[in-house]
Amino acid sequence: MSTYVLMKILESTPDRYDRGIRMLTLGMVDRAYDRLAAHINKGEHVLDIGCGTGALTLRAASKGALVKGIDINAGMLEIAKKRLLDAGFAQNAGFSETGVAELGDETAGSYDVIMSGLCFSELSEDELAYTLKQANRLLKPGGLILIADEVVPGGVFRKIFHWLFKMPLMIITYIVTQAGTRAVRDLPKKVKENGFSIESVWFNRIRDFIVLAGRKPE
């Protein structure tokens, strides 16, 4: 009904998603994804949860890994497919319109790496818990979980600074793209609780962006 006005603008969201995310993270996302991709080796089976327009999928595919990208947004998947095709890595990647709640259908222990860039911040607490549990089930023993996402920083001062700094960016991003994210709370703790050991954690200076690598024990 009246939300119709907004829908009109939202119609073209997938095309503008990449630009929106760059604005929101001030370009940090590219460097973060490079960091994640450094963990991936040739021939590995990789699952990209919430692959979106395929930024992370492409990095993994270009290293010679065999990647499955899943996302619930058909428009973004179209862009991702085209991106891989244009870069000449289409044979290394497959895409599927699948949500995190549908991961129960995948075979246990079938991936070397499960990665996710800026997807967990779009999930509810329930969905995040379910996803981490599934990630543990789907990884081979010794497999890696790689996450790059926005997090709520610890400590009162950092929190205040985070919101002051983030608010104007969020408003501008919302106006331009109607895309927004919700920072994740206590991510390293949640990853540990789901049976992973933390390999490495990197934060940006104001500690509201995380690049995390965890390992499923052998």
Partner: peptide
């Protein structure tokens, strides 16, 4: 997807 997600 949204319906499946909340059910699961």
């Amino acid at each position: 997807h949204d319906v499946i997600s909340v059910l699961k």
